[in-house]
Every structure is written in C-alpha cells, then in structure tokens.
Write a protein that binds this DNA or RNA. Sequence first.
DNA 1: GGCTCCCGCCACTCG
DNA 2: CGAGTGGCGGGAGCC
Length: 708
Amino acid sequence: MEMKCLSLKDLISVRKIKAGSDDTDTMNEQKENICVERRIMTPLKSDSLMAHRRVCSPDITHITPIKHPEKSHPDPWTPTANLKMLISAASPDIRDRELKKTLFRPIENEEKVTEEDEDLDDSCQFEVLDDSERRPSRKQKSLGLLCQKFLALYPDYPEASESINISLDEVATRLGVERRRIYDIVNVLESLMLVSRMAKNLYVWHGRSLLSKTLEELERTGREQGYHLLMDQRDGSSPHAAQHTQNTHVASSRRKDKSLRIMSQKFVMLFLVSKTRTVTLDTAAKILIEEGQDDSSHSKYKTKVRRLYDIANVLTSLNLIKKLHVREENSRKPIFKWIGPSDFRSDSESLEVSGAHTGTAERREKMVRHSSFIQVVPTPHVNRRLINSAPSTPHRDGKDEPVDFSRKSVSSVACRLQFEDSPRAPSAGSTSVAVSLQPETPYTAQFTPQAVAYLPQTPVLMLYSSHVPEGITQGQRSPVTDQKKREREEDENQASKRSKRTASTESETAESECLDTREVSPGNGPVKEDGVEKRSNTDPHHSSQYLYVPNTAGLNGLNFLMPAGHTHGGMPAVAVPYFLVPSPLIAGTVPASCAEGAAGGGLSFSVPTVLSPARFVMAGGAFGMADKFNNAEHHGYRGPGSTLSPQGLRKESPRPVQMQTPSTPKEAALWSKSFFETPGAFGLLASPPAARKRGSAQRKLDIEHPSN
DNA sequence: GGCTCCCGCCACTCG
DNA sequence: CGAGTGGCGGGAGCC
C-alpha cells in the first residue's frame, strides 16, 4: 500500500514536470544557470550537470534509468518515514506539499532528478549512470552545495529597484530539500545580512549589497568584545582564551549564543579580528562555548563543532572562507581562512575584495553607497529590544545577551548591530547606524531631493530638505498642527495600547489598514488618506510634511522619507505607497549642515553629513517592511521600482505584515515623534519579559511599535 | 578512528 | 492544536 502511494505520487509529479509547469520563473532559472557556473569554485559534478541540463534539454533529465528505491522516497521502514507516509496518505494537503516538492526537484536538484526519473521513467532507460551518480553521496547533499544552489538563485547584488522575495517553502521545493535545511542556510545568510526575514516563510534577498557594512560592524563588535585578544592568544589552544571571553561577557547569553545566526556572526568576527584571518574550528568552538561546565563541556563542544561545520559550509559557499587542513601531530585540524572582503573598513572606497570574482564593477559601484556611516548611540532599550528577537531562551537574564542584529535588519531597528551587551561598555558601539548621502540613487533624482540619508543596514533612504519649493504649499490642512499634536499626545495612551498589542502579537499578522499606503498622484494631485487630503504646508518656507515611502513598493528595501512638497508637482514622480510624516518631527532631525548643503538643491550633497544618531534611530517597527504584495495589490501600485520577484508574485504572502505606521495624521505625528526624536524609542518597544521570550520557535516579524 | 555533518526529532512560540 | 522555527545530537559517510 505504501509503495502504491509513492508510485502514484511520483507518477503524477513526473507528468507535471513534463508538462513544463516549471516555467514560472524563467528569469531566475537563467540567473541560476549563469550564477552556478560563476560561483562554483570547484566544479561539482552535480551542479554543473544540473546547469548544463537545464540549458540543454529538459528531456535529458529523464535519462536516468535505474531506480533507487531507498532514495526515491524516505525509507519506509523507519518509524519516521512510515509515519510520514501514513500522514501523507491521509492528508491531501500534505500530499500536495510533497507532490510540489517532488515536482520541483528535477529542476533544482540533480540527484533528485535522477532519483525521480528512475522512479518514474522506467521506460526511458537509455543510459545508465554509475552508482555514485545515481545515489547522491553525502557530499552531494551537503549544506555547502545546497547553499551554492540557493545562492545561484539570486544575484549577488540585486538591482536597487528589484525586490527579491524568498519563500522558504518555494526554495525548499525548488531545491528539493526539507525546510529545515533551508533554515540552516538562511540563518547564516541572515547573520550577514544577505537576507532579511520579512514574515514567516518570507525573506527578502539583499545579496552582498550590505555585506561590507555588516562585516565592518562585525569586526568592530568583535574587537569590542575582545575577540581579537582571544585570537591573538589562541595558540594556547584557547581554553584560556575562551575563559577570557566568558569573563568578558559575564552573564552573557545562554541560548542565543547557540543560535546559528549568532554563532555565525561570532564566527565571522573571529576571522575579522584575527591578524592571520584564520580560525581553527577548535578555537572557534572553544571561544564560542560560554559556560565551561565540565560535565557537559564535551558534548557542548561537539555540538558547537557541528554547528560550526554547518556555518563554515555556508560561508564557504559564499566564498568568504575556505577550509584548509593543518597537520598537527597526529591529527588534522581543520582551519578556515578568510578569503572574503578585507578592505571593508575603508570609507567610500569600501569595496568588496571578493567582489572581483562575484560581482561586476557595476555591482561594486553600488557598494559605495553604503560607504560612510555614523554611529548611533545605543541604548539599553535598544539592546533589549534586539535581544528580544534573539531565540528565546528558557532562562533569559534579560541583559548582556548577544543580539542578533540581523534579525532586525530591514524590518526593524535600522542598522542596529548588537551582538552583545558588554557589561563594560553597555553602549559601546554594539549598535551602529550607517548613514550616508546617496546622491546617485535613482530615486533621488526623480524626487529632486534636497538631501538624502541612506541607512545601509536597514535599507532606509531618507530625503529631507529645509525648505519647500513653491507650488507645494497649496494650503491643504496640515495634519500636524500643534493642536493636532496635542490631541495626539492625548491619544498616546491609545497608541501605546496599540503598540503593546502589536509587540505582543505576531507582527506579521497585520491589518493592512495600518499600513498607510496611498497611491501617490504622479502629478499635482493631492494625497489622499482615507479620503482626506493631506499634503501641504501652511508655512511656505517649511515643508510641513514628509512622505515616508516604505519599501513595500518593491524598492528593494529602500524606504523613503521625503518632503511632501518637494518633488516636482508636489508629489513624487513615481507612484509608490507612502504616508506623510509631519515636518516638525523631522526637521529637528536634520542637522543644520546637512540642511544647508541640501538647500542647494539638486544633488549637491556629496559631503557625508553626520546626522544625529539618536534622531536617526528609525525603528523598523514602524518602517518595517510591509507586505509587499499586499501593498502592491491592494493599492494598485505598479511603480517603476516595483519589480516584484516572480516568486513573490507567484506566492502569496502568508499574511499582511503589520505595519505600525500611522494611518492618520495624528498617529503619524505621534509615531514619527517617537521614532525621530526618541533615542530610546526602541527600547520602549521592548516587550516585557513575558512577551519577549521567544525562541527558536516561530519568530515574530521583527517589527515593533515605536511607542509604548 | 577521528573528522564531518546529514538528518530529523522535538521543544517552543504563537495564532 | 497546528504551523513555523530552529536547537540539538545520534550516527553514518568520508578520509
């Protein structure tokens, strides 16, 4: 009976495959073909073959003749497999899922192709592949290879205008692996900001665009944590070094350190602070092991090493490190050497060293955008907030925990980098915000901005100005009058409640109405919000409102904040969802120097402007990524930059992302205030311990409400 | 025989 | 209670 089910399933899947149902993403596939060849340093048989096959002929995939029962499906004799099979047979949904999975396998996973074909295409047995080919070896199923395949699906440096969404489900099916494996990869990628989590099952791809910045932050943090000292003395087999680390971190985290993301970041830190840029697994493991409880130290060590192998495999796939072997006495100690970017510390010239082999000049050029940046004074609140996102820990001390900043990346605290709360330096640069002017951004040109601030790590593009051009002060009522402000303050309680609710609930489950995305009139048309016109300015010399354009419009993580009336015709030339942010709340955030420079108009703001860190604490909570699809669809947005990825369009987002953006002028002001003027805004968002305890389990979208 | 690391169980959290 | 996450470690492939 079991065998029957499988056969049927497989048969169906083959039919679908042959029907060419996999053409949904031709573009990606082409990319993959290109990328696979480019990326794979050591041509792996399976991958090159895969690429080749894809290019040449789909039919070739059906060549494989012989069937491998034990591989074509889970071993039916194991308890797990049995259970799966039974469940599958009983549940149409599960069956469909499995079917889908199978369906995509032939496309992305060479060995799977072989297996499936063997299963189904007995009549097409023209060739016979040797065992090694038919039966995927352990290596062929390695995380590293899987990661390469994963990476091949996306560009290293996605266009600023393209928003590449990653559906874990889809990727898993495409690659023919379990979601669990995708998590392993994504977690590491996320630790380096190559991807950011948007919602459950949904990530957004950044590629290497933010890598340099991330590495820079990692190095800095690593030094702050004293890792360089540890690395310097690691020759001593590092037990002492490890101890040092522990002492340094004191009550540092427990569980989050076990997080693959955190571990990955720390692992990378070790490389970056190391003079030789080499790290042995042993050293890394020991350094990363916190508690030195003797009773469990060994098992901890082993587990740590396992995880490090996982991480190292992914990093290797990223061409960031490579494994070497050091013959030491009677054992061969694996040692990893950093081969990734090493010059990311420089400012505007910061380019990826490794970019040479992965990116084009054009791509590298984009990296420059993330060059200059400033530090934001971290606050305990912020730290806590970030800690919040870290995998839950049964016993969390609530502080001194390394924080996975990547989690907050896009949707959250802009650019907050927080790995650990060093007791000795609570605010010691563990968090930082990169801000740079972005004269060359295509969007600025369209908006004719006065100044632009770009927050690299949490892609946010801000445009601001000190004056308002004529023609935009068309006298519409300002949503942010003083009176309104007062009212707003009165409403704070409500807002607070709302924020609390938000903080304690799944951020991704949101009501789209919260996301104030309106269609922007390409011309002079007034902006409407809930039927109410709201653009304007009563003061001809000051823009009273700014438009915040969340990157929900497929702008690849770029959020805009611009003077409402600062574009030609008073409105942006592009149609994007946005909402207004009262000028008074922003004006103060713009340094005089910047404002002045900006006053010149046009794009004459090449000089990096140092912005008040505190004022630029833009909580992702509010600027968080909204559900792109929802926005795009619900608001009919089809802007220039709205290149929703095929995947994105194909797959509906699980749920609307809850945007804690104001939906009313009142809220906007209140909200903005907290974001732009409250240094500890994030901290305020910190959920109470109860609400904060989240773990490896279902993650909330890292969006939090600004006020609380 | 030790190094690697795949595999998937199962704990957690949240809706 | 189901779904999404992801920590964790058994144990088998590989060198």
